[in-house]
Design a protein around this nucleic acid. Structure first.
Length: 270
DNA sequence: GAAATTTGACCTGA
DNA sequence: TCAGGTCAAATTTC
């Protein structure tokens, strides 16, 4: 049983708490929408709340990533051959030093919420997968040397809303994350300042935005908000844990933290 | 014209 | 040998 990661970082807890509070407020808003608000304004507020929740969660992830001790337990326990996070060994041109990188996965219906800009650099049909895997790297990889990458794998799912497994690899060094938990401004101006910087173009039929759009079609019916902290029970000492959120029965994302780094702090061989 | 995306080829670890 | 990650030229978009 891995030590509870929450105890490692009060900052991460703060971010998680902030995200939870916003989700709670969102639920309250859905349960009893203010009568003086138009449906459009209410939806705008909901979207704003949701976006801020997501940025808080992303900030928590970043905090945990930057503070977590390095261990190779998770890597050695990699079982999933289709999970890029658990398989990353630096294949490809000019690589091959056996680099192992910090990574974590998020199962989500909204994969473009992380507030970063990404450039697609590849797409690959993965064996056994119905949909191709898409490879992104930070827009600033070239000019700022930011090592952050992510892969997006649409998962086979019978539901209408597509689900994606987003694997983040390495942390952004290009800029401070735009993920600080900002005090909620419960205005109804309609200006949500929604982040439009991430994933500017989801290629092909990969309508990731489609999932986002669907997620915005929120029903006023109060639905359960569930936050579960599910620590890894493998008991192998690996720094692996996940937090699953299920919001409104429509939006869900699972933070599957995997410390897949074991190179004594050398995250990259570049 | 610059930037981003597409896509086939290439490379490497398993 | 194969699967998967990356490169880079061609193409598309703004």
């Amino acid at each position: 049983m891995a030590s509870r990661p929450c105890s490692r970082s009060s900052v991460a807890i703060d971010h998680l708490t902030g995200g939870y509070e916003r989700l709670t407020q969102l639920r309250a808003l859905l349960s009893s929408p203010p009568a003086n608000l138009s449906s459009t304004a209410a939806q705008t507020m909901m979207i704003s709340l949701l976006d801020k929740s997501l940025t808080c969660l992303a900030a928590a992830l970043a905090e945990l990533q930057s503070r977590s001790p390095i261990t190779d337990a998770a890597v050695s326990d990699s079982k999933s051959e289709t999970n890029p996070c658990k398989r990353m060994r630096g294949r490809g041109k000019g690589r091959g030093k056996g680099m192992k990188k910090m990574s974590w996965t998020i199962n989500t219906t909204v994969s473009d919420f992380d507030g970063h800009t990404w450039r697609k650099y590849g797409q690959k049909q993965i064996e056994g997968a119905e949909f191709p895997r898409t490879y992104f790297k930070c827009t600033y990889t070239d000019d700022r040397g930011c090592p952050a990458k992510k892969t997006v794998q649409r998962k086979q799912d019978d539901s209408i809303i597509p689900k994606y497994e987003v694997c983040y690899i390495m942390q952004h060094t290009c800029k401070a994350m735009e993920t600080n938990c900002i005090p909620i401004e419960m205005d109804s101006s309609g200006d949500t300042n929604r982040s439009k910087t991430s994933s500017p173009n989801w290629s092909n039929e990969q309508s990731i935005s489609e999932g986002r759009a669907a997620s915005h079609d929120l029903s006023p019916t109060p639905l359960p908000l569930r936050v579960e902290d599910m620590l890894d029970e493998n008991g192998d000492g690996g720094e692996s844990w996940s937090i699953e959120f299920s919001l409104l029965g429509e939006l869900d994302f699972e933070l599957d933290w995997l410390m897949s780094s074991s190179c004594n702090g050398e995250f990259d061989d570049s």
